[in-house]
C-alpha cells in the first residue's frame, strides 16, 4: 500500500449499519480537512436515515438506519454532497483554543526522559511543545480524548515500553508525532510531560467534549500555583484566544 492521499474518496461498507469513506491512508492536515468538510456538509444536509457520523484522521464513518435509507441510496447521496463540497471550496475553520499546562515535576513525570531522549533540556522541550499550533484530528481512545498533531521531530518520542496503569485526568502526553490530553484517569503509554486543569469531558453536558475535530490547539505553560486557581475557576469553560 502506498502512503498517499487518494485521487477519489473510497466508499465501503462497515458492517450492516455503516458506510466508511476514506480519503487517504496517512495523517495529514489536507486529508483531515476533507474529512471534516464532508462531515459538516452531511450533518447540514440532514439526510433521512443518517444516525450519526464519526470523523477520524483520514476517514469518515456514517451510521445509517436501513429502515430509512439503503446502502446504495446513501452512497449516491453522499457522493453528490462530496462533489458539492469539492466544487464550493468552503474551508471549515475550527476554533482556536489555548490549553494552560503545568509542565514537568509530578505533573509531567516523563518531561525529563523526553528531554534526555533527544539530548535537550526540559525547558527546550516545553518551548518546542508550546510554540506550535496543533490540529485536533479526532476524538477517541477514551471519551473526549483529542488526538493532536503533529509535534516537531525534535520532541517526537515513542510510547513507554510498559504503559502506566493509571494516568491522571488532564495529563498531556506525547506518542511519536502525536500529542494528546487524557480527559479522565486511564491506563496509557503516552509520555506524560504536563497537566492541564481544564476539564476536557463532561458527560452531563449536551456537547460533552471541550474540543472537536478541526479545532486548533495551542498549549500555554503556566506555573504550578496557577493550576489550583484555574481548576477552581474555569473548571469546564474554555479559554478562547
Amino acid at each position: 500500500m502506498k502512503t498517499e492521499q487518494y485521487a477519489f474518496a473510497r466508499y465501503m461498507p462497515f458492517g450492516d449499519t455503516a458506510l466508511l469513506i476514506e480519503f487517504g491512508n496517512v495523517i495529514s492536515p489536507e486529508i483531515n480537512r476533507k474529512v471534516i468538510a464532508l462531515n459538516e456538509a452531511i450533518l447540514k444536509a440532514e439526510i433521512q436515515g443518517v444516525e450519526e457520523t464519526v470523523p477520524a484522521y483520514r476517514s469518515l464513518l456514517v451510521r445509517y438506519d436501513l429502515r430509512k435509507i439503503n446502502y446504495e441510496q446513501l452512497v449516491c447521496r453522499i457522493k453528490d454532497i462530496e462533489s458539492e463540497v469539492k466544487n464550493s471550496n468552503i474551508e471549515v475553520t475550527g476554533r482556536k483554543v489555548t490549553i494552560p499546562v503545568v509542565y514537568g515535576g509530578v505533573y509531567g513525570p516523563d518531561l525529563n526522559n523526553v528531554a534526555k531522549y533527544h539530548g535537550l533540556t526540559e525547558e527546550q522541550v516545553v518551548k518546542l511543545h508550546s510554540s506550535k499550533e496543533y490540529r485536533v484530528y479526532m476524538l477517541g481512545f477514551v471519551a473526549g480524548f483529542p488526538y493532536l498533531g503533529e509535534v516537531v521531530d525534535e520532541i517526537a518520542t515513542p510510547r513507554l515500553e510498559t504503559p502506566r496503569l493509571k494516568v491522571p485526568a488532564g495529563s498531556v502526553g506525547i506518542a511519536e508525532k502525536q500529542t494528546g490530553i487524557y480527559p479522565c484517569e486511564a491506563p496509557g503509554g503516552w509520555r506524560i510531560i504536563g497537566r492541564t486543569p481544564l476539564r476536557l469531558f463532561n458527560p452531563l453536558q449536551e456537547s460533552p467534549a471541550l474540543l472537536k475535530p478541526g479545532d486548533v490547539v495551542k498549549f500555554r505553560p503556566i506555573p504550578e500555583e496557577k493550576l489550583k486557581i484555574i481548576e477552581r475557576t474555569v473548571a469546564s469553560s474554555l479559554e478562547e484566544r
Binding site: 462497515f14 466508511l20 476517514s59 477517541g140 488526538y147
Partner: peptide
C-alpha cells in the same frame, strides 16, 4: 491510521489473533 470502530468489528493486530470489538470498546 486509526479510524472509527463499531461493535462487531473484528480487528487483527500483528500477532494474527482476532479481537471482536464489543459495546464498551474505545471508539477508534
Amino acid at each position: 491510521v486509526s479510524d472509527a470502530l463499531l461493535p462487531g468489528a473484528i480487528q487483527v493486530p500483528k500477532n494474527g489473533k482476532p479481537i471482536i470489538i464489543m459495546r464498551d470498546a474505545q471508539t477508534t
